[in-house]
């Protein structure tokens, strides 16, 4: 299965990159843009299928290595096949 992990800064945590990108978007005339946050995506292949066991493994992997719970949130998508 193919896994895509999305890591984003927590809403309560300042995101200097997001603020800079928002500023750039506004200066290009996109005045209506609000709340830009810059995160990252991590993709990988993993043996197995979408199951409770896989999801427990993924939660463990995401919560510590791939994201830091103090400052970041994560979610992931699983593509079978």
């Amino acid at each position: 299965m193919k896994v895509t992990v999305f890591v984003s800064p927590k809403n309560t945590v300042l995101d200097p990159q997001g603020a800079a990108v928002e500023h750039a978007m506004k200066s290009l005339g996109h005045e209506s843009v609000e709340g830009v946050r810059v995160g990252k995506t991590i993709t990988f292949e993993m043996e197995g299928s979408d199951s409770q066991e896989s999801r427990e493994k993924l939660d463990k992997l995401c919560d510590g290595l791939l994201s830091n719970p103090v400052i970041e949130d994560f979610r992931y998508e699983i593509e079978e096949g």
Binding site: P9, V13, L14, P16, Q17, A20, N68, V70, I71
Partner: peptide
Amino acid sequence: LCESGLLPGALIRNDCL
């Protein structure tokens, strides 16, 4: 030390970038 939980909190990108 912050990442490992030996100290609380985290260090992120400088606000000035």
